[in-house]
Design a protein around this nucleic acid. Structure first.
Lengths: 254, 254
DNA sequence: GAGTGGTCTAGACCACAGA
DNA sequence: CTGTGGTCTAGACCACTCG
């Protein structure tokens, strides 16, 4: 029967957005083809295409040439400074929280990990107090996915002088007790952290790795962990499509 | 002479973006009309319009029916937890920092302030421990602009039981020493704060007040200030187009 | 080869602002 | 009234995926 009154592309986007949130279209399923939607809403395919662009920019969907348009909606997850507490780490909650949250949504958590020695980017080298442009760091790169939808990119950088030959170079999805425990066993106990957060468009590589449209925005978290003496021993960068995260932190005043 | 090779709308957007960043088109000036750009780039106006949509979603420009397309690019500003330090407040730096940053860009800072008693939103009422749905709070709403471009919405909420008849109800662009000092004089010294940050699409009212296109994302900061006893005495919400802010904070580990 | 989304055009009508 | 951006159509061609 179609739709009696004509919709603008924003309204069309709004309606489809609501249907996704309501579960009419399930996450990781495929939307009807644009010509079908055009017929359903009594509009031209151009208009449907523009509505799709709006939803893609929000991260609700991911259209792909030849493959159709997949629903990629995932509600935001909490990123709390409390995740760095000793209890959270020892219980494996830092890792487990991600898995649990994803599973609760009925999706399958997946992890990809690459450990390698590399030349750190300039901002990382500077934060770690390393000379720039040299292969003087170890990096653990992780890509986290939910039922095949990439949701987060992590890279943890350590000075090679500290990490060389240690547990940190071990492959595998996780380090027993977490990287902070591994560093502590090496004599580098972290007592303070600084985070810098900003929102920006993704680089081309990030857009590819996260499989998002170029007009999506990402949250970029630059985390520096320091020892009591003020030495920076770990830099972890997190890049995630912006709406996937809620950040919470507490701090003393004065 | 136009442009020899045809550009896609993303490339067209990229070129104009770069020209804006390079200062070819100045912030608060007006871009050439779409038909002129269409001619310049040898494309249809539809394509130019779509490129404009991309740049508008990024916050680089603000197209307006009948009025032309204004350049609204403003580089990000730092939002650091350190802004709450006593020194920053007493020197007026919290306020001055905004003005100084804007002036440094060659723009004119402007402030609009409304002080009134109102029914707080549910999340604010809950944070302040107030019964919902009652006119039991005082709110100081501020809109910050740079040469007529709105860049930030602030609303500071206080329990009416505390703020009634105090300096907090005073009109005017600023309170001597800041609201935290005013609260301290009333016997409510804040010693701890919690912030919850997330990125989301603007509400319709916010899009209007910030004069942004609906597909822009905003940063939403929900700040709760508490006394030593744990009583919440101030909630400040900040809404700003996402790319205008960089957030930085430091916290102890363990 | 058939079907998908990605892009683009030419033209149209509308809503709005400003002289 | 003129010129602006906002929307929309009908049709076209292309790049990509998959059977």
């Amino acid at each position: 029967m179609g739709t009696p009154n004509k919709l603008g592309f924003r309204q069309m986007a709004a309606r489809i957005r609501q249907e996704i949130i309501d579960g009419v279209y399930l996450t990781a399923s495929v939307l009807p083809p644009e010509p079908v939607l055009a017929d359903k809403y009594g509009a031209s395919r151009s208009l449907v295409n523009r509505a799709m662009q709006v939803l893609a920019a929000e991260g609700m969907i991911r259209p792909r040439q030849g493959r159709g348009t997949m629903v990629t909606y995932i509600p935001p997850m909490l990123h709390s400074a409390a995740r760095y507490s000793r209890e959270a780490r020892e219980s494996g909650a830092a890792r487990g929280a991600f898995d649990a949250e994803i599973r609760e949504l009925g999706l399958e958590p997946q992890h990809e990990i690459i450990v390698e020695r590399a030349v750190p980017p300039n901002d990382v080298a500077e934060a770690l107090g390393l000379p720039p442009g040299e292969e003087n760091a170890l990096v653990r790169r992780r890509r986290l996915l939910a039922s095949g939808i990439p949701v987060r990119l992590n890279a943890s950088w350590f000075p090679l002088s500290i990490a060389k030959g240690s547990d940190l170079e071990a492959e595998g999805p996780n380090i027993r007790g977490g990287v902070k425990s591994a560093l502590a066993e090496l004599g580098y106990v972290q007592t303070k952290a600084t985070e810098r957060i900003h929102v920006r468009p993704p680089t081309e590589e990030e857009a590819d790795a996260l499989e998002i449209s170029p007009e999506r925005t990402v949250l970029d978290i630059f985390h520096v962990g320091k020892t009591e003496s003020g030495q920076a021993v770990e830099v972890t960068t997190t890049v995630t499509p912006a709406h996937y995260l809620v950040i919470e932190h507490t701090f003393p005043l004065n």
